[in-house]
Amino acid sequence: MRAAVVRQFGPIGQLPIEELPDPVAGAGEVLVDIQATAVNFVDLLVITGKYQFLPPRPFAPGKLPTGIVSAVGPGVTMLKAGDRVLTLAEHGGYAEKIAVPARDCFVLPAGMSFAEAAAMSLAYDTAWFALCERGRARSGETVLVLGATGGVGMAAVQLARAYGLRVLAGVSSAAKAEAAIAAGAHGIVDLSLPDLRDSLREQVRAQTGGAGADIVIDPLGGDVFDAAIRAVAWRGRLVVVGFAAGRIPTLKVNYVMLKNMEVSGLQVSDYRKRAPQEMAHCLREIFRLYEEGKLRPAPPVPVALDGVRGALQSLQDRSAKGRLVLMIGNEATI
């Protein structure tokens, strides 16, 4: 099989495409012919050796590939050849085939393409855990989603709307407001206004009767976090998802105490490893809402396996337009 292979951690431009022996499904495993795998920012960290969990080399990067079960190993009864699945593989997605435990595979809804499933992975499950598990969202509450037009942000907007929350979308410019409203946001918080520390809070209070946001989902960090913490309602919850703005912020915890608020963090890979039943419930919910027409992933941008280095480079320099998905197998369609 063909695969992108990490033999030494280093620049993405050195990532080779090689021929490797086909994997074989062992006991409790299935062999999956990969059809589509998203290209994620976390892959940059893995390839360059900067991620906190690194597999033994050599390996193919690429998380959560989708594909078709082509063979089942001894002891597998819940899946059969021909099943269309999303896998929870932590690496191995930048390849034509992968052997993965059957318990880590989830049959796709009939109407969901491989590319859609790959594009939704990591974004929608991250957003679901931030909103529903860490944020303990309840219908009728107000959630402020920062970075609302990014992958996780857009997923959070759609999920919050589906669960009956009032959604405020934090956007980096007024030009992005239309996309956030189209995704389901009820209101906009413009993060490009002067004096962000005060202007963010003023915008949120103006749209919540002065109360603030019950939940804030923050994939940005930096100055945005510093401003957003002031817009949290009494007994509100702020969930830290990432630091796309570049700076890891600090927090004076007396402010947390005075407002009876909670600040928590989310690393979704831990749920795949430590709480598989919760992850299974998350995916069932995402698939259910998709089938009900309440989740509408943006059309993925297809990339051939040979183009993976260019795709990673566009993520690195932030020039990527849309959700990049490697289209690998013959059955893969957008």
Rank of each mutant, 00 (worst) to 15 (best):
126 T>K: 06
117 A>T: 02
113 S>P: 13
146 L>Q: 14
124 Y>F: 13
132 C>F: 13
133 E>H: 15
112 M>Q: 11
144 L>M: 12
128 W>D: 01
117 A>Y: 06
130 A>W: 10
142 T>S: 12
130 A>V: 09
129 F>G: 03
132 C>W: 13
134 R>D: 04
120 M>V: 01
144 L>N: 07
137 A>L: 14
130 A>G: 15
121 S>I: 02
113 S>Y: 09
114 F>N: 04
145 V>K: 11
120 M>Y: 00
126 T>E: 05
124 Y>Q: 00
132 C>M: 15
127 A>R: 10
137 A>T: 07
124 Y>D: 00
132 C>Q: 15
122 L>R: 00
123 A>R: 12
113 S>G: 15
131 L>C: 08
122 L>A: 09
143 V>N: 05
115 A>R: 05
127 A>D: 09
118 A>D: 03
124 Y>R: 00
120 M>K: 01
119 A>Q: 05
121 S>C: 00
146 L>R: 03
136 R>T: 11
146 L>I: 09
115 A>C: 14
142 T>D: 07
123 A>Q: 13
134 R>K: 15
138 R>E: 15
112 M>N: 05
122 L>C: 00
141 E>L: 04
137 A>C: 14
118 A>P: 04
131 L>F: 11
130 A>L: 04
145 V>D: 08
128 W>Q: 06
140 G>P: 00
114 F>E: 06
144 L>S: 11
